[in-house]
């Protein structure tokens, strides 16, 4: 059987809220080392990869590898019934056709149980190669969310260019153009406001803002977002959850036709 308990149930809620508009359904794969998901959006332009480590849970038991297919909209409906402070326990029997979610309030006065029907989902699993990236940028997650939102009111695509000491986001549209530059800033009083750039090679790539805006729904998960870029490769947009795991988004670049 599979059983996992997470005290910060709000985390699970945030993860599902971050991906539910991008992917319709997905298999949640559980094994000894943890809980993971990989899924593409319906246009096969982007890929979501979630991994939550077994030791990030208070209790974790997985007797044999299980793959549980769920419709994200339905999972979201159920998790919305959990309080942000609730502990959440997930439970499923081997070869079971449901997964049970138990929500416990911090004072343990209220205990709720919801069963979600599992589904068979055909999903193509892609191999994500280990890569050394030309540039890695770590910036406050809220800052990135604001940039992609602001640029979306001007254009549909963004060119992200990274040099040694700055990252630039630029767009052009019918009404005009916009450029936002963030300088490297490591030595701030508040570490959550730092911007760090690690570069092997200057790089500039163009991406659809619609997807980046969707990825930015993961902002509540982490103080920072990490962007990894290489010439002619998908961008990686990563949110790390300390001691628990990571939510990564991969987006194929736009090309000149």
């Amino acid at each position: 059987m599979f059983e996992a308990r997470i005290a910060q149930g709000g985390l699970l809620k945030k993860v599902v809220e971050a991906i539910k508009d991008l992917i319709e359904d997905a298999n949640f794969d559980c094994n000894n080392s943890g809980f993971s998901l990989q899924a593409m959006d319906s246009s096969h332009v982007s890929l979501v990869a979630l991994s939550l480590r077994a030791d990030g849970f208070e209790h974790y038991r997985c007797d044999r590898n299980v793959s549980m297919g769920m419709k994200l909209a339905n999972l979201s409906k159920i998790l919305k019934c959990a309080g942000n402070e609730d502990a959440i326990t997930m439970k499923s029997e081997d070869n079971g056709d449901t997964i049970t979610f138990m929500f416990e309030t911090p004072n343990q006065e209220r205990l709720s149980e919801f069963d979600l029907k599992l589904m068979d989902i055909d999903s193509e699993h892609l191999g994500i190669p280990e890569a050394e990236y030309d540039a890695t940028v770590k910036l406050p997650a809220g800052e990135f969310q604001r940039i992609v939102k602001d640029l979306s009111s001007i254009g549909d695509t963004v060119e992200i260019s990274v040099t040694k000491d700055a990252v630039k986001f630029g767009t052009t549209g019918d009404i005009g153009s916009a450029n936002i530059m963030c300088r490297q800033n490591k030595s701030v009083d508040k570490p959550e406001e730092s911007t760090e750039i690690d570069i092997n090679e200057p790089v500039a790539l163009t991406f659809a803002l619609r997807y980046l805006n969707s990825f930015a729904k993961a902002t509540p998960l982490s103080t920072h977002v990490v962007l990894k870029l290489s010439k002619d490769l998908p961008i990686v947009v990563e949110y790390h959850v300390p001691d628990v795991g990571r939510l990564g988004f991969y987006l194929a670049p736009k090309v000149e036709e």
């Binding site: 246009s43 890929l47 193509e124 699993h125 892609l126 191999g127 194929a252 000149e256 036709e257």
Partner: peptide, 14 residues
């Protein structure tokens, strides 16, 4: 104009 590539072009099926 700019074309959108598919993510499957970059990551092989596993």
């Amino acid at each position: 104009s700019r074309g959108q590539r598919s993510i499957t072009m970059f990551f092989p099926g596993g």
